[in-house]
Design a binder for these strands. Structure first.
Lengths: 255, 255
DNA sequence: CGCTGCTTTGAACAACTTCAACTTCTGTGG
DNA sequence: CCACAGAAGTTGAAGTTGTTCAAAGCAGCG
């Protein structure tokens, strides 16, 4: 499981950054762990070569081998119903862990693909579990991360069930803005790596509705839309539209 | 934390059953643990006196002290928005664990109340975490339970986002039926412990819609409704209405 | 008995979807 | 480098589903 040699090789290629030096350290698994413990974690993690747009991280039905932490880029999780209809479950940005929902029965119930060029850290689950057994801080952080996912889901369930289309989309945008900010990117200018279709699917709306909302938001001076590039002109206004408790970090589910 | 004396006293009152003898053993925390380990778990669990309808297990904003396993009866989790609007997050039957979403920041973000006379096992989280550090099987089962919640949420998100009102309600009923069955109760005749309002709120619909659907389902010979008592007359028909992959055990979220 | 709260039912209304047509973008091959 | 085909996005008009509002029916309970 541990591959120090391999890691060094990848390091030379510029793909590898140890957890210790990773800018996502404070958002990811290592939170609350000692330097020594992070080093142990580091040794089970495999840095993979970057994925291209459309590459699968894993597919629905696959056995669970590893969890994945997004390092750069973004991924989308979705499942496909028997009739072939896709359901988008979430979008994941750097520092977010995907695959947690597969632990239950060691099987992935959704697929995850890269939305753009994306690099991830692969974390073999068996090794992670063993390590968590030895490192209390790691066990705790795993519990915390899973619990946070549950909280996110709660918030999202409320958005899906109780909000109008306007509120849904503004919630989505505010959430993206916040997540970009906390990762050191601009919270007011960013690129949507997903299609309108994906957004619509995710929010339980029709593509046409999303399109109309984008134009409406733009006309109201809330945002500026240029294809996939979004500029937020009035974050406070968006927040107001999103309704109260819109703090909930939405858009990240499952993987 | 461990209160053997107290436990014996409660035992005499007929409230206490050790995990070992509990009929919910195979649905709850002890899954996959050895007899000895279950005994250790048993020692940190506090059996509380029964709650009455409307009693709070914990409130939104409370600090996390314990997780709770429903032993009998049922509870409802919900949060209240700033405008005072309630959002029902889930209903929990015996054998289900509530409070997991509070681990993230040691704070409950929803309230949980008893829908009827209900007894629960209180599991102090600190002690549980310590024990999980020593008992690999317990750590694993905790990961599994949290992961299952994530999977449930996924399924529910799909129901909320993509399904019609008919599909939502039939999904709900099928899920209840399954959960009652696997707990040894009748899967075709049961009492709804929650109000129409709660169901509507949970499914993101209006009360009136739920009411109309109940009458429609009854007219179509799918179910028989007598106040809170439901008799399922055509489970297969309901399943068909619920759409594919309706297996997902729905209705249990958050707590 | 007469509240009070929950449920049911009807009718009008609104929000969002669907359908259809058109535009813009993207990328591929000549 | 341009042309073209297919995908993605936008826009308008009509159609549905579910909501809202209003009112009446019913069970439980002091």
């Amino acid at each position: 499981m541990t591959e120090p040699t391999d890691r060094k090789v990848i390091d030379l290629k510029g793909l590898k950054v140890a957890c210790q030096e990773c800018s996502l350290r404070d958002l990811c698994l290592p939170v609350g762990m000692s330097v020594q413990d992070i080093d142990r974690l580091d040794h089970i993690i495999r840095r993979k070569r970057p994925l291209h747009r459309g590459d699968y991280l894993y597919r629905e039905g696959d056995e669970l081998h590893s969890l994945y932490a997004v390092r750069s880029g973004s991924v989308k999780s979705f499942s496909v119903s028997e009739e072939g209809e896709e359901q988008v479950l979430g979008f994941h940005l750097p520092g977010e862990l995907v695959g947690l929902d597969a632990i239950h029965d060691s099987t992935h119930h959704c697929s995850t693909i890269a939305l753009e060029t994306t690099s991830v850290c692969e974390i073999p689950f068996d090794a992670l579990e063993e390590l968590a057994q030895e490192i209390p801080g790691l066990q705790h952080q795993l519990f915390r991360l899973m619990s946070r996912e549950l909280q996110n889901d709660e918030h999202f369930m409320m958005v899906l069930g109780k909000k109008s289309s306007e509120e849904k989309l503004s919630n989505f945008l505010v959430s993206l803005s916040q997540r970009f900010s906390s990762r050191g990117f601009s919270g007011t200018e960013f690129m949507l790596s997903m299609s309108r279709n994906d957004i619509a699917n995710y929010l339980g709306l029709a593509v046409e509705t999303i399109s109309r909302l984008f134009t409406r938001f733009q006309n109201n001076g809330l945002i500026e839309v240029d294809r996939k590039f979004i500029t937020i002109r009035d974050l406070e206004g968006l927040r107001r539209l999103a309704g109260p408790q819109c703090g909930g970090h939405m858009g990240a589910h499952r993987g």
